[in-house]
Each structure stands twice: as structure tokens, then as C-alpha cells.
Amino acid sequence: MKRETLLALNAARRAGRAVVLASDMTTAAARLITAGDKDDPLAEDAREALRLDKARIVEKDGAATMLTPYNPPLELLIVGAVHIAQPLSRMAALAGFRVTIIDPRTAFATEERFPGLTLLTAWPDEALKTRAINHRTAFVALTHDPKLDDPALAVALRSEAFYIGALGSKKTHAKRLDRLTAHGFDATTLARIKGPIGLAIGAVTPAEIAVSILAQMIAVLRRAEG
């Protein structure tokens, strides 16, 4: 790899752009392929490497090329600075997510409750408009309050977010789906929402529920579960 290629790669990573480093395994000649590249002969393989977030070797015309994906950081957007959000934000940060908490109720969204995290106190749909939601974003609605959760879910459903979850019982979730259907979302789109949220591990406490949510996020990210 040329020094310039390494500098360009680091610049792309700092800017949060998804790029793939393509290295010829015989000559070590390397180039960058961006997510939107259409001309590179390995563009399609590069996109697959980004999607799976996994390095791979492609053999073409007698040459072996290593494709190493560099995805933007994982991001977790939590609507609702509620009790469950406290352990969830800390656990998700440990797992590599950059966490943002969104709640216009300033009594909930406080620095004391969420030290060191990004707190947005605008209305969720307004707050979400300021964020780039991409294929590395997980979205979780925890307020139970349709006024807060529904508009945020509508934004998430129109995005590429890899995970969308909403807290609430089966009954609550059924009502939520009715409301979103009335807003024009079809069944396939609504099926993206994990509700009731989390893997069924019998979680009881806020921390245990946070484990079940984070486990489900990772299962979807790593495609261990549909």
C-alpha cells in the first residue's frame, strides 16, 4: 500500500464514509473503493464486504484481491431517556455503539442520568432530521408514548437503519401498528419493527431488558436472526 492510500483511507474513516480497501495480494498495490462506486470492477464485491462488515478475498482474472471494509461507526439512537435507556446506553457503548439519547422531557434527559452521552431535547422527529441514519444505525423507541414514539418510528422506517425496535406489550404494539398503518405504512415496512422489543430471555429488570435489546440488535447486525 502506498502511503497516500493509507492517508486517504484514514481521512475517509474520520469523515464517517464507508470505504473498502482493495489490495492486490501479489503486488500489494492498493486502491479505495467507495460505497457508491460504479466503475470499479470489484464495486459489487466491495459493497458486499461492507454489508457483511467482513474482509474477503476475490479471485478474478488470475489475481487475488483482498477487500477490507471500513464502515462508519455503529450508532444507537434511543428515543426516551427512561430507566431502561440508562443501562442500554452504557452496554451499547461497550459494544462499540455511539449512543444518542433523544427526549424533549428535560427532566428525563439529564447529564446526571446519562453522563458523557449526546442528549437531544428537541422533539424526536425534529431531532432525527439532524442525524444521518444509515445501515450502521440502530433505532430504539422506549417512551411508550405515541406522541413521542410514533413520529420517530416514522422517520426510522423511511431510513436504512439496520435495526428498529419499540418497547411495549403485544397489545401496545398491535395498537401502534394500527396507527402507523393509518399513516400509510404497509405491512412489509412495519415488519421491520421489533415489537415487543428484545430477545425472549425472560428479562425483568431494566438492565436485563437492556441485555435482551442489545442482544437482538447484535443478532440482526450479524444476521444470526431475521
Binding site: M1, K2, M66
Partner: peptide, 11 residues
């Protein structure tokens, strides 16, 4: 386990 490791110089 088994692994292949590619080592390259940065030039």
C-alpha cells in the same frame, strides 16, 4: 484455529 495473514509494506 487456522488463519492466513497478509503482510504488506507501506511505501
Amino acid at each position: 484455529g487456522e488463519i492466513d495473514i497478509f503482510i504488506e509494506p507501506v511505501t
